Simulated assay, not measured.
Amino acid sequence: MSARQHAEINIEAHLLHAALEPLLEGLTVPLRYVVASGEGLGSENDQQEQMRRTLDPVRARNPNLTISAKVASDHGTIVRKDFRAIAEAARELAALTRES
């Protein structure tokens, strides 16, 4: 996949995420994000960080949405490199479920 194709897919994914905003705002169960802070293939000029910030207003309106961790990986390597942070986010959710 070329860098351009990869960037186009990332943009489309963020547009789809934005379309989910009403659903995310109404979510009544906890949701945890592990956010990749690295630049993705084909990104330039801090595009990834700008796209990540689109979640901030939704998170501000719904306390069920929380960032569990922000890791150094990019979106292509987060599962491989930061699986421990993902596992910790899952443990956070499991603990909340046991408490309820």
Rank of each mutant, 00 (worst) to 15 (best):
Asp56Thr: 05
Val29Trp: 02
Val29Asp: 02
Gly76Val: 00
Thr77Val: 02
Leu96Lys: 07
Ser100Tyr: 09
Leu15Trp: 04
Leu55Pro: 01
Val35Phe: 05
Ser68Phe: 02
Leu55Asp: 06
Arg52Lys: 14
His6Thr: 13
Glu21Met: 07
Leu24Ile: 01
Ala95Leu: 10
Arg91Asp: 15
Ala72Phe: 08
Ala85Glu: 12
Leu20Ile: 03
Pro57Val: 07
Gln47Ser: 13
Glu12Lys: 00
Ser100Leu: 10
Leu65Gln: 02
Thr66Trp: 00
Glu99Leu: 06
Asp74Leu: 01
Ala87Leu: 01
Tyr33Val: 01
Met1Pro: 09
Arg80Lys: 08
Ala95Thr: 11
Asp56Gly: 01
Met51Gly: 04
Glu44Ala: 05
Ala95Gln: 10
Arg91Val: 13
Gln47Thr: 10
Glu49Arg: 05
Asn45Arg: 14
Ala90Met: 12
Leu24Phe: 03
Glu92Arg: 02
Ala72Arg: 06
Gln5Gly: 12
Arg91Leu: 15
Val34Gln: 11
Arg32Gly: 07
Leu41Arg: 07
Glu88His: 03
Gln5Ile: 08
Pro30Cys: 06
Ala19Met: 09
Met1Ser: 12
Lys70Met: 10
Thr97Pro: 00
Leu65Val: 00
Glu44Trp: 00
Gln47Ala: 13
Glu92Gln: 13
Arg91Tyr: 14
Glu21Thr: 09
Arg61Asp: 15
Ile78Gln: 12
Gly42Arg: 01
Pro63Ala: 14
Glu25Asp: 13
Val58Phe: 00
Ile67Lys: 05
Arg59Asp: 13
Glu92Asp: 14
Asp46Thr: 06
Ser37Ala: 12
Leu93Ile: 04
Ser37Arg: 08
Gly76Gln: 06
Ser73Thr: 04
Gly40Asp: 15
Lys70Val: 15
Asp56Arg: 01
Ile9Trp: 03
Ala94Arg: 02
Ser100Cys: 13
Glu44Thr: 01
Gly38Trp: 01
Thr66Pro: 02
Asp46Asn: 13
Gly42Ser: 03
Pro22Lys: 06
Arg59Tyr: 02
His6Lys: 06
Tyr33Trp: 07
Asp46Met: 09
Ala3Met: 01
His14Phe: 08
Gly26Gln: 13
Ala90Phe: 04
Asp74Arg: 00
Ser68Lys: 03
Ala18Leu: 09
Glu44Asp: 10
Asp82Phe: 00
Thr77Ala: 07
Leu16Asn: 15
Pro30Asn: 09
His14Trp: 07
Leu16Tyr: 12
Gln47Ile: 08
Ser43Pro: 05
Ile67Ala: 14
Ala85Gly: 09
Leu16Trp: 07
Ile86Asp: 09
Ala19Phe: 09
His6Ala: 14
Asn10Asp: 15
Arg61Gln: 14
Asp82Ala: 06
Ala69Thr: 07
Thr54Val: 04
Leu20Asn: 11
Glu21Asp: 11
Glu92Ala: 09
His6Val: 11
Ile11Asp: 14
Pro63Trp: 03
Ala19Arg: 14
Leu15Tyr: 10
Asn45Trp: 10
Ala19Glu: 14
Arg59Pro: 09
Ala19Pro: 08
Thr97Tyr: 00
Val79Gly: 04
Leu20Ser: 11
Ser43His: 12
Ile9Phe: 05
Arg4Ser: 11
Ile86Val: 01
Phe83Gly: 13
Gln50Cys: 11
